[in-house]
Design a protein around this nucleic acid. Structure first.
Lengths: 204, 204, 204, 204
DNA sequence: AATGAATGAGAATTCATTCAT
DNA sequence: TATGAATGAATTCTCATTCAT
């Protein structure tokens, strides 16, 4: 009984740590956000942070990465499996990516910084990404005739590429927004870009 | 026998600072590379670094950027002004960007790192980039009928966008290379991507 | 609970920082005394010094000044608010200044030396002095008919002037003591000097 | 021939070093004025400064002190010996002190700072000051009936005291100027203060 | 388990001083 | 003699991490 209470308490604290950390990164940048600062903002003692995340900031990012990737894996919303139309699927995919990007901007900035002193994180990220889209591709191919025609490996790589391309454009300093009046137009452009790229890549 | 404690070769020293700094960034990341570290690696006293770069790391990045961009500006190869064919021009442009990218990979990674904690550097980079392509655009429009038709502002923005898009793809963790057998194929893809994007953007 | 223990510890540490800092200033001068030096002498880590005094030496001096001034002013002896006689008040004031000076001669010499070699510190000290005597003047004018007649600004400036004049004579290298057989005579001289000066100044 | 030229050149350089050094001290304070900065301002290489003043800033002050004290000793203007009126003499004395103070404010600030890391300088200064006024007192007592009545020792000490009192008020942080509309009024106040003090001191 | 005071290595930066030219 | 590039110890300050309570 009290165990559950503690557990809930713990999770709530970890949630607060994530939230404040990524908030602070958005406000001040990764390297100007200290563990002590996170503790202060999350109203948790620095000791507690080091209890949950023994390696500090890097651990926060690493654990968040693992958890969020698991969420992403479990989310059935990302691609609706039963829609035969590839373009619709991609549309859905890109819309979700943009949504995901907006919600996790702080995390992504943190992640970019973290991999600089933690090359394993990058490797781990690539591996997880690959696994996610492998799983996705397998499900899609099982559920859906149109995707069945594309070889699994090609499909996975295409998803990974599309995922990276969209992220690159969204995170990289493209000042891209000023070309588009609305988010719909942005989605449309990205969709066309991805379709074009996939056709190009899958052709060869 | 003479200790050469006081080597007076300013240019050679600055070259060494750049080289060692970017090496260290590639190895350890921007924020794990200290000015004292640079000095040690470049076998130069810390005082000398601050003599040439009074604001430390930030200044090294900034000055290298300006110098390398100036070189790019001065290069007549970048865009051959008298070729009327836009596609040829873009081809040239992208080829140069890739060449440039390959030669400056360390610097670019360093720069990406730096701007994450230095908004000024980002602003300065954007401004400089804009000016470079403004100059380019003006020259092109004067020398060349086809480009004359496109409004200057649109042309500049299109160049900036293309420059950023290509860089994003080259630097962002796209593992893009494995899709292409040869550099020619990569160039071809990027060219098509840029053409597609520019048509898309300039249309609206 | 543990708060008390921390509190006691904290104050003892701060006391040690003050003591060692002023000792070092007397021995080596303000600018030859580094924060690391203070830490070493006080057997406290440099981090702890910056925890209690975030702006380093400047903060140590500033906070010491504030505390010592507060002590001085809180003493009910300093100025008995309900005594109408201005001369009595000044007498009291000067007696307290001398007493304070004698008890803290080392600290005060260090303090003078510090503010003389740091323009910021001097400005900050002047401002603080002004505020302290402004507060004093306001209380006096409320509590006391005779002081009510003097405009607030004039009263404040007169206090500041008197305070500075007495301090200047006590700290500046006047070798003044040898002129006086007893402390009473010194007080009498200073009192007369201040009265003379104030009459002179307030007249115009 | 060239020797003379060199010599003049050297003196002119030293003059420039003094001038720029004390200027910079006035502007930025002693400890924020570096030897390199002096060199830059005086348009002399740092090597040359160290040639003339091997111990840097301290040497500049020490040498200036010696030279300026000699000038002061030789100046017959300071007190006109043949005026019987003590008040006139003091007036002259104070006027000269104020003039001297204004001309040497930078030097005095430097001096205050320098004695903190050079106690010998302070001792030396006190000794020189005493000798100057001893000499002065002796001449006065020979030339002038009124002064003859006062014992030499008392007269010297009184002069020293007056000198220090005026300097204390002028240099110490008195913000005294704002009480006076004109320099004449300041002189009048200081004169009265000194007269009052001397009467008070010589009486006992 | 939770706290947060304390630590100290390490980063950025300055500046008196040296010495090859 | 004059120069000023080069030096590096010393300084200020930060922050990840530990550990006594």
């Amino acid at each position: 009984m009290s165990k559950k209470k503690f557990s809930r308490n713990k999770e709530e604290k970890i949630e607060r740590i994530y939230k404040e950390f990524f908030n602070l990164i958005l406000k001040k940048g990764y390297h100007n956000t200290s563990t002590n600062h996170i503790a202060e903002s999350a109203k948790i003692s620095i000791g507690t942070i080091y209890k949950y995340f023994p390696k500090g900031k890097e651990d926060i990012i690493r654990k968040y990465f693992e958890e969020s990737m698991e969420n992403m894996l479990e989310s059935d919303d990302l691609i609706s499996l039963n829609d035969d139309n590839i373009r619709n699927n991609l549309n859905h995919f890109i819309t979700e990516l943009i949504k995901y990007h907006k919600e996790n901007r702080g995390y992504h900035l943190a992640f970019r910084s973290a991999i600089q002193s933690d090359k394993k994180l990058l490797a781990s990220h690539r591996e997880k990404t690959f696994l996610i889209f492998k799983d996705r591709a397998q499900k899609l191919r099982k559920a859906n005739k149109n995707f069945e025609k594309i070889p699994e490996k090609g499909l996975v790589e295409a998803f990974v590429f599309a995922y990276n391309l969209v992220n690159a454009i969204l995170y990289h300093h493209l000042s891209i927004m000023k070309f588009f009046d609305s988010e719909d137009k942005l989605i449309e452009y990205l969709l066309n870009l991805v379709v074009f790229s996939l056709q190009y890549l899958l052709k060869s």
